[in-house]
Write a protein that binds this DNA or RNA. Structure first.
Lengths: 220, 220
DNA sequence: AAGTGGTCTAGACCACGTC
DNA sequence: ACGTGGTCTAGACCACTTC
């Protein structure tokens, strides 16, 4: 079926035969046809609706998958030495614009720096909801970064990610050792478990050393 | 099962009971348990290996999905007016660094501009492999952008995406009407069908008006 | 070697949404 | 109303990989 989609035997807009017909044609059971069709849906190649049937769609979605990396692994796997420094930690307050995401919940506010071969790689500015993650109040984050601790311990179900480019500002210049006019790559991430807010983080990378690369291959 | 993962009845590192046991416990058939477990694998919550069993993993992968948008839709759905202008088109050559991705294949080289409410929104610099997409030689791309035409007509199976931040250079300043020192958000995308290269594109957006937002919710 | 997940079958019934 | 996809079952057998 994938081959027929790729060689445009079934071009965009076509309806495929229904499950029972496909099962007969390929001499397999309906269940097997279903699993195959489901994987085509997952790959974003067709869409299915009851009664309407299975339709070939334009290929655009499902291009790439972003991950929440452990910065340490990211750096070490690239063959560099990882370093970490806690810059700041307190309960409550923050100049981050959280747009009321956390309501009145008590927050832990942490700033830290991830280093690659001793040089600033990422400046992390984070808020943690102590209502939903009470253990976060006891963590010092002196040795272990919030990033690493959270990924290891706290499950989430919803993520919102924003990627953008920015110019280096005051804290970037100080912590990331940049100059005014330098470029910053910003990742903001907000995670929740169900409707409970967990954490919001703003990650700032020197633009000249950082990029996100994703690869996907859904080949035949 | 999702609930047990979220409330850490089954914490990271645990092995789940095997399929037959779960089937008995939840009073369903093994097939049903399997489908549920498969969706947990897709969500990146567990990993499974024969004989070794089903294991709870750290939650980091599978955060967000990037799409290959049709720029027109992206702009119009945000409530703006879309505009398009072909800047340049020829066969062969290019100053883009394609790192030998296309080998000796004949290429179509196109530059164009996507406008939002009359203002430059995205500067597109693209190479199309005419060996694998011969129809691309006949398209003028005067009315219809390569982006739109390709998404509608050409299936792909592999995508490589690079996201980064940059400073505005010569062409950005001219086409995107920016000033030296302004920030650019760059998306580079390379697509292929199997091992056949299809197209490489570099998209440049004014950094102050552009960001990528992705949301995922795998809630209970 | 044994135990786990992986694949397949044949059949039943359900539920949605288009016609 | 009816045709399509969606869900479930009970069972068989296979294939990998760890013990």
């Amino acid at each position: 079926m994938l081959q027929r989609l790729n060689d445009r035997t079934w071009p965009v807009g076509t309806n495929l035969p229904h499950e029972v017909q496909l099962a007969e044609e390929f001499q397999v059971s309906r269940g097997t046809v279903r699993r195959a069709l489901e994987s085509l849906v997952d790959a974003g190649l067709v869409e299915r609706r009851r009664k309407a049937g299975t339709r070939v769609v334009e290929r655009r979605a499902y291009a790439s998958t972003l991950t929440i990396p452990i910065v340490r692994d990211e750096i070490e796997q690239a063959g560099y030495r990882y370093g970490y420094k806690l810059l700041f930690s307190q309960m409550g307050g923050s100049d981050l614009d959280t747009q009321g995401l956390f309501g009145e919940a008590p927050l832990r506010w942490v700033k830290c720096l991830h280093l690659r071969d001793g040089r600033p790689y990422q400046y992390e500015d984070r808020l943690i909801n102590v209502d939903t993650i009470p253990e976060a109040a006891e963590q010092s984050f002196v040795e272990l970064s919030p990033n690493e601790w959270l990924v290891a311990h706290v499950p989430y179900s919803a993520v919102r990610t924003v990627l953008r480019a920015d110019l280096a500002g005051g804290e970037d210049i100080r912590y990331l050792q940049l100059r005014a006019g330098d470029v910053i790559f910003v990742v903001e991430r907000y995670t929740a478990l169900g409707k409970q807010p967990l954490t919001f983080v703003r990650l700032r990378h020197p633009g000249h050393t950082f990029q996100i690369v994703t690869e996907v291959d859904t080949s035949c």
